[in-house]
């Protein structure tokens, strides 16, 4: 059973998540005509910057986040930005887009110069998220849980972060039971994706280096 307080929390998180999306004009550019390698690089950089801004705006709305120590806020965002971006991108790929748009996007990313060894796990992750068919509330909560990971580097007051993360985990667990009664392992599957995300985050620096080099 989801309590009234939990329903309110879910609404705040889901609303904030829906409100803060990459601006249409930035997203649209991805589907436009051919770009040179350099333009492609700049475009993806612009997208990444926009994603970080959107992520920060979303995070500001997570109840209790702004009451954390300011440097801890930055440490949490810095530690989770890449994972949150992969999560958001995975959801873009899971959405039903107009015919051909998925292919254009995938092709653009595949031709961006990132080495194949990083590309494969990334698209595998997108697929593994896609098959879960998460509802928006689950996506929003999973992102909030990712951001509120207490053991990110340089976080001083881990307990304060845990106190914010625990209610989200409890709510997500209940939501999974309600939304997917026929899949008792669903919550565990979602947490498993977070582990996968950590691996992607770990290789992200190397991935960027390969991108820049190419």
């Amino acid at each position: 059973e989801i309590t009234k307080e939990q329903q309110a929390l879910m609404k705040v998180i889901a609303d904030a998540y829906n409100r803060h999306q990459i601006p249409q004009d930035v997203a649209k550019k991805l589907l436009q005509d051919q770009y040179s390698a350099e333009e492609n690089f700049l475009l993806l950089t612009e997208m990444a910057t926009s994603q970080v801004q959107v992520l920060v705006e979303f995070t500001k709305n997570i109840p209790g986040f702004l009451s954390l120590n300011h440097e801890d806020q930055i440490a949490l965002l810095k530690g989770s930005a890449v994972e949150a971006m992969f999560l958001r991108s995975a959801q873009v790929f899971s959405k039903k887009m107009p015919n051909g748009h998925n292919e254009v996007l995938e092709d653009r990313i595949r031709r961006s110069g990132i080495s194949e060894e990083f590309m494969t796990p990334m698209f595998n992750f997108y697929k593994s998220i896609g098959v879960l068919h998460m509802v928006q509330e689950e996506q929003a909560l999973l992102t909030a849980i990712t951001i509120l990971t207490p053991d990110r580097p340089y976080v001083k007051d881990q307990q304060a972060v845990e106190r914010l993360q625990e209610p989200m985990l409890d709510l997500l667990r209940k939501l999974c039971v309600l939304q997917h009664p026929q899949k008792p392992q669903y919550f565990a599957c979602l947490l498993g994706r977070l582990t996968e995300l950590r691996t992607l985050n770990y290789y992200h620096a190397e991935m960027l280096t390969s991108w820049r080099m190419n």
């Binding site: 950089t45 612009e46 910057t49 970080v52 801004q53 920060v56 930055i74 965002l77 810095k78």
Partner: peptide, 21 residues
């Protein structure tokens, strides 16, 4: 432009709400 900033700079500015400055 924001694209020339590092991740931490973008986060700090967005947290302070003055990315346009």
């Amino acid at each position: 432009p924001a694209s020339n900033l590092g991740l931490e700079d973008i986060i700090r500015k967005a947290l302070m709400g003055n990315l346009e400055e």
